[in-house]
């Protein structure tokens, strides 16, 4: 089948790729661009591991055809830290013990970022609600929710 050109911005850089239209954004990120921080688990929208930000909104890259993100702005976990400085949410995940195996972590952090960008002062229940599409089999979620709330505090003080 014929290939087509997909153009988008990825972590602040323009990117142009020749791909088959049946290629998911997840495959493009992991296989073509070698951005393996975005994780592939269920592949069918159930787990949130593959979450990326498309125009600042959390989206599932396993359900997104790469060809459909023409002209959009994509942020993956690799695009969050600036240099050696972790983003406050990343730092809070480290500090609060919110990371175990780490496989859900990139998706969790990006979902949390979208939440805090929209709602800088969420309640515990709002955090749980926002993260309810991101499964984690390791942590029981307690410290993940703690980390997001802690990050909100730090970001309010101008940490971001």
């Amino acid at each position: 089948m014929s290939k087509e050109i997909a153009r988008f911005t990825i972590n602040g850089r323009e990117c142009e790729l020749l791909i088959e239209p049946c290629t998911s954004l997840l495959e493009v990120l992991r296989d073509h661009l070698e951005l393996t921080g975005t994780k592939s688990s269920c592949g069918v929208g159930e787990c949130g591991s593959c979450t990326v930000l498309i125009d600042n909104k959390p989206q599932l890259s396993c359900l997104t055809l790469a060809i459909t993100v023409q002209g959009k702005n994509i942020v993956t976990i690799e695009g969050l830290a600036s240099g050696n400085n972790l983003h406050p949410i990343q730092q809070a995940f480290v500090d609060c013990g919110a990371v175990q195996c780490g496989f859900c972590t990139p998706g969790m952090i990006l979902t949390a970022k979208a939440l805090l960008d929209d709602n800088p002062n969420p309640s515990r229940d709002e955090v749980k609600e926002a993260l309810s599409g991101n499964l984690c089999r390791c942590t029981g979620y307690v410290k993940i929710v703690d980390a997001v709330l802690a990050a909100a505090q730090i970001m309010k003080k101008g940490g971001a």
Partner: peptide, 9 residues
Amino acid sequence: VGTPHVRRM
């Protein structure tokens, strides 16, 4: 419907 991600998409 579904999860927050599914509701957005």
